[in-house]
């Protein structure tokens, strides 16, 4: 641990390993990003990409990079970061390594919103808006049902699971109501895809990140105190109920808007915080590393989905496979460690 102190009363605490890992992951993410922007029908070398990004490319390159490929990359980065953050927050709120929005019904709520638009027939903008609305409404509902003198982790889990089962039923029904072509489009959306995403898809999520990230980071120290249990955290001066409400609101907003941007990209929220914890080896909740590893995971998975298969797959298939495999492994090890 490194401590930086000013002659005044300010002091900062830095963990060298977390810092190094964060920087490395950040750089790696940028590198994958440059490769991603270079890939396509009009291939560009990393040098070309960097030249174009700094304003030295031809008009055509400029157009391809800033209008076609960069938006997709930025959407992927934002979705990954948002899901990583939200996952870390949920896991900490619920006090369980499996507490991810995919499992607790928030994602299903966003899907319900989107499917309603698919069945009724609406534009992509309407679909994104409905997804965000569905996610936020579900979050609100779960909060209201689970509330009892504050929200406790296990109630959130059970209510979330119940809600998720109900909404899965509703979603299945909506899917049967859509014509086949629309159903296929809906399935694609439900898997989570970055295909053809433009700046307009990324903008709302970016705005949400600008608001939510500072709030969440400010809550970070208090969140670490809640790891000691609600009573101990209260004793240390944390207003646990208010903290939970703020965190839940921020996390739901991030999940809902990332679903609006790219569909419910599965299991990033589950996997990214674990990845961050393993890399930094720091116990407890680490929000910023979770955000970075979420971004890295999402853009890398997207590149795998685009390059490794003859037919382009949506990113959600790759994250789903990674996440599902990881989940099984996690269940096995957590059980052995007696934490489950």
């Amino acid at each position: 641990m490194i401590v930086i102190r000013t002659p005044g009363r300010l002091s900062l605490r830095l963990h060298p390993r977390a810092l190094a890992v964060g920087l490395a992951c950040g750089l790696l993410t940028l590198a994958v990003g440059v490769l991603a922007v270079g890939h396509g029908d009009y291939p560009m070398t990393p040098a070309d990409v960097l030249r174009t990004l700094t304003g030295g490319g031809s008009a055509a390159e400029e157009f391809i990079v800033t209008q076609l490929r960069l938006p997709r990359l930025v959407t992927g980065l934002a979705v990954g970061a948002a899901l990583g953050l939200a996952g870390a927050v949920f896991q900490s709120l619920v006090g369980n390594p499996l507490g991810s929005p995919d499992i607790l019904g928030f994602t299903q709520g966003a899907a319900t919103g989107a499917l309603v638009v698919v069945v009724l027939g609406g534009s992509s903008a309407a679909l994104a808006g409905a997804a965000a609305l569905g996610g936020i409404t579900t979050g609100l509902l779960i909060y209201l049902v689970a509330w009892r003198r504050g929200v406790h982790g296990y109630r959130l889990v059970l209510v979330g699971i119940g809600m998720s089962a109900i909404l899965t039923g509703v979603n299945g029904y909506l899917l049967t109501r859509a014509p086949l072509m629309e159903a296929a489009r809906a399935m694609l959306w439900l898997t989570g895809s970055l295909d053809g995403r433009g700046w307009s898809n990324a903008a709302p999520l970016l705005a949400a990140l600008v608001v939510a990230v500072p709030v969440l980071l400010a809550c970070g120290p208090a969140l670490r105190m809640t790891e000691l249990g609600d009573d101990a955290a209260t004793g240390l001066g944390v207003n646990v109920h208010r903290l939970r409400m703020v965190l839940l609101a921020a996390a739901v907003l991030l999940v809902a808007l990332s679903a609006a941007a790219a569909g419910p990209v599965s299991f990033v929220a589950l996997t990214a915080p674990h990845l961050a914890r393993r890399l930094t080896r720091a116990p407890g909740t680490n929000l910023l590393p979770a955000a970075i590893s979420g971004a890295l995971l999402t853009v890398t998975a997207d590149q795998v989905a685009v390059r490794a298969f003859p037919a382009q797959l949506p990113v959600g298939v790759v994250t789903g496979v990674i996440g599902g495999g990881y989940l099984v492994w996690l269940l096995a090890t957590e059980r052995r460690a007696g934490r489950l």
């Binding site: 998720s164 789903g320 996440g323 599902g324 989940l327 099984v328």
Partner: peptide
């Protein structure tokens, strides 16, 4: 609660697999 959560997680994983399969095979869908 923990068991339910583990089950729900498995559920989510399996459903995401099923939907991936449906995506690959439109007749199956």
């Amino acid at each position: 609660a923990r068991l339910a959560l583990a089950g729900a997680a498995l559920n989510a994983a399996l459903y995401s697999y099923v939907s991936a399969v449906m995506l690959l095979d439109s007749a199956g869908l």
